[in-house]
Amino acid sequence: MKNIFNLLTVTLLIFGCAEKKSQTKELANSSETIKYNGTASITQGIATAIAEDIYSCARGRKTDVGEITSTDGKKWTVPAQTNYTNNDFPFAADLFNSCEGKNYATTQEALSHYDDSKIIEVDKDGELFTAYIFADNYFEMYVNGIPVGKDKVPFTEFNSSMLKFKAKKPFTIAMKLVDWEEHLGVGCEANRGKSFHAGDGGMVAVIKDVQNNIIASTNENWKAQTFYTAPIIDLNCTSEEGNYRYSKNCSAEGGQDGSSFYALHWEIPTNWMQTIFDDSNWPNATTYTNQTIGVDNKPSYTNFTSIFDASENDAKFIWSTNVVLDNEVLVRYTIQ
């Protein structure tokens, strides 16, 4: 049954973007009254950069992090609050990473460079598993609430990763997925002739046992929920139904000026990565084709189609219901 929310009327100050550095500022004498019917916090305009170039790649996009305040006074980190600079959260190993010259042609070549001292023991006497992951753009992965690996490249160039862990079945995989952004706070990047183009996400994963059998891969049975949606040009295009957060009727056209674009933010549950977290009311993941995500020209994917597109178990790209506008997505799946 569709939830009916009290109609909120909020006055938003229109924010502008300085020419060379992301910052939030008020445009004098500019305000408008907008109506929004939903549970999210609302921001408008460009966020203030609080960290620049957390990772550097010669041909990659800038990997900045920003902060912005919503109309209800809450502060939000964009594109997401991550553990990228947290030394206690391990990095995944490279399956393919052209930023660092790890241009492996085969899975076997990549595995030959794996340092087994980096295997994460969720359960000391558990079975050994290997996860292979391609994320557009960034991921952090937990098993039973234990960090087992994060992406080395937050944005571009496109890379793929692998990680090993020991665990007892059943175990729960939980992942934070982030579609990074060049224009902080509005989910946009310069692309395809537009200064503010809405980028897309997508993640595919395959988990194998020591016998090289696929025990799990991403599909529609995973759970997926969005917590940051942008750019939103017209707030009336969004809707909610139970725990479904829809932006399917929203434009993804972008433009040359994103200073008036909105964003929707939801608070992330503190225990979302734990086994005990109840994800039963989250939507199932939406699946997407290779063509929709656009990986057919990316060697970080095409070099490993024997894994990701295995004939006996073809893994699916997953995301929330909007792979373009939803920028921070949590996914979960329990392997029995």
Rank of each mutant, 00 (worst) to 15 (best):
residue 152 K to I: 07
residue 140 E to L: 00
residue 258 G to A: 13
residue 11 T to I: 13
residue 55 Y to L: 02
residue 5 F to C: 06
residue 71 T to A: 12
residue 169 K to V: 02
residue 54 I to D: 05
residue 18 A to C: 12
residue 278 D to K: 14
residue 137 N to Q: 13
residue 158 F to E: 09
residue 315 A to V: 15
residue 231 P to S: 04
residue 17 C to E: 13
residue 23 Q to S: 14
residue 214 I to S: 10
residue 219 N to F: 07
residue 20 K to T: 15
residue 186 V to R: 02
residue 216 A to T: 12
residue 172 T to C: 11
residue 235 L to G: 01
residue 227 F to P: 01
residue 151 D to G: 10
residue 110 A to R: 01
residue 205 A to N: 01
residue 95 L to K: 10
residue 40 A to W: 01
residue 322 N to Q: 08
residue 123 D to R: 07
residue 44 Q to L: 07
residue 159 N to H: 14
residue 54 I to S: 02
residue 112 S to H: 06
residue 36 Y to Q: 06
residue 331 V to D: 00
residue 289 T to N: 06
residue 183 H to C: 01
residue 35 K to G: 04
residue 166 K to D: 03
residue 103 N to A: 07
residue 288 Y to W: 11
residue 169 K to Y: 02
residue 280 S to F: 08
residue 12 L to V: 13
residue 167 A to I: 12
residue 200 D to V: 03
residue 113 H to G: 01
residue 292 T to G: 03
residue 56 S to M: 09
residue 297 N to V: 03
residue 303 N to E: 02
residue 191 N to V: 04
residue 138 Y to L: 12
residue 179 D to N: 08
residue 260 S to K: 13
residue 260 S to L: 04
residue 84 Y to N: 01
residue 188 C to W: 04
residue 57 C to Q: 11
residue 317 F to C: 05
residue 299 P to Q: 07
residue 98 S to T: 14
residue 47 A to M: 04
residue 132 Y to I: 15
residue 96 F to L: 10
residue 17 C to F: 08
residue 251 S to H: 10
residue 238 T to A: 03
residue 331 V to I: 14
residue 29 N to T: 09
residue 205 A to Q: 09
residue 320 S to L: 01
residue 205 A to R: 01
residue 277 F to I: 06
residue 142 Y to G: 02
residue 268 I to D: 05
residue 263 A to P: 01
residue 211 Q to G: 07
residue 27 L to T: 10
residue 312 E to S: 14
residue 45 G to I: 02
